[in-house]
């Protein structure tokens, strides 16, 4: 594996490997000096054509804790504003000499396209409505950590609630959780469901209250106002009344159920302010684990694969 464009690139075995490897990096992150020299001399560029707080900072922290050098590209301060094309932009960054490029773009498929233009490893940090694989990996890791078992996924009931249609997080999480054997239910009003769910290994519900009691993990998605060009529900209040995780709904979950959200949260819309700080809410832990999981992904891409080649050559 030289790039991570979608969860499918890893498969169930690859996902499990990343999760186990992340254990080592969680330990590194807890040290007084949370840094190892594993990727010394490697350069990682974050190339984001779309806004981000946690994903970019998380990747940069991960790269730095592995002693890699980092380069940051922001569209707002770049020559893209002078009309430079996507291809010229990424080829310019690549020409500086980089080992990995972390790409976010509002259009699906851009990371895949970029991976055909340049030699560096490409990590998809979110492309349009398509995929956000490292988010899914850190979500799986957080669930595994919270449940305290190496493989808690077979039969685990995961409900993904909210704007499925516009959500790359939902797509990646469906792929990852179901690859590991969890049972995923999508919960959303019909207007926020993708036009076709053919081939998705999921169940579908339009009634959050009906699935609450039979769920181990409730995964709330952000209402993405910036991707909505039409009126898909009458009002935020109405959405919140039917699909929001209110205090009252949180009380009806079974006691061991976990609450997750990829951030940024619209407090009072998909999640009530006080719910996000309940003890069974994993939202902060998701962010913390994001660094360790991204370290595992970077290390797997830049540390391990040459290993295989070198070993085969030596043998």
């Amino acid at each position: 594996m030289t790039s991570l464009l979608a969860v499918e690139d890893l498969g169930a075995t690859g996902i499990r490997e990343v999760l186990r490897l992340a254990d080592s990096f969680v330990e590194v992150s807890e040290r007084a000096i949370p840094r190892v020299p594993a990727l010394r001399g490697r350069t990682v560029a974050t190339v984001f054509f779309e806004d981000s707080t946690r994903t970019r900072l998380s990747f940069e922290t991960a790269a730095k804790r592995l002693s890699a050098d980092t380069m940051t590209f922001s569209v707002s301060t770049s020559s893209v504003n002078k009309g430079e094309s996507l291809r010229d932009t990424v080829e310019t960054v690549a020409a500086m000499g980089i080992d990995a490029m972390i790409v976010r773009h509002r259009s699906a498929g851009v990371p895949w396209q970029v991976s055909r233009w340049i030699d560096a490893s490409i990590i998809n940090a979110g492309d349009g409505w398509h995929e956000h694989p490292t988010q899914a990996l850190l979500d799986c890791y957080t669930v595994r950590q919270a449940l305290g078992r190496d493989d808690p996924f077979p039969g685990l009931r995961v409900a993904i609630v909210g704007d499925i249609k516009h959500s790359r997080v939902a797509r990646s999480n469906v792929a990852a959780f179901s690859a590991l054997g969890a049972r995923v239910t999508l919960v959303a009003p019909p207007t926020l469901m993708p036009p076709s769910l053919e081939g998705w290994p999921v169940e579908v519900s339009h009634d959050l209250d009906a699935v609450l009691a039979d769920t181990d993990v409730v995964y709330l998605l952000r209402i993405q106002a910036e991707r909505m060009n039409e009126a898909l529900f009458p009002s935020l209040r109405e959405y919140s009344a039917r699909y929001g995780m209110t205090r009252e709904r949180a009380g009806r979950l079974c006691s061991s159920a976990l609450i997750m959200h990829p951030g940024p949260m619209n407090r009072g819309v998909e999640i009530a302010a006080e719910v996000s700080s309940l003890p069974n809410s994993l939202i902060t832990r998701q962010v913390t684990n994001g660094v360790a999981v991204r370290m595992a992904v970077l290390f797997r891409l830049l540390g391990a694969p040459e290993a295989s080649e070198a070993l085969v050559a030596h043998a």
């Binding site: 186990r20 490897l21 080592s24 190892v36 594993a38 290390f299 540390g303 391990a304 290993a307």
Partner: peptide, 26 residues
Amino acid sequence: LDVAFYRDDIGLRPVLPEAVTNIPWD
């Protein structure tokens, strides 16, 4: 102590994900 991330021949050897460092003292 797992030294995988400190090796000078990193990339020449497979990393064992199960081997974790546990040194809870200064």
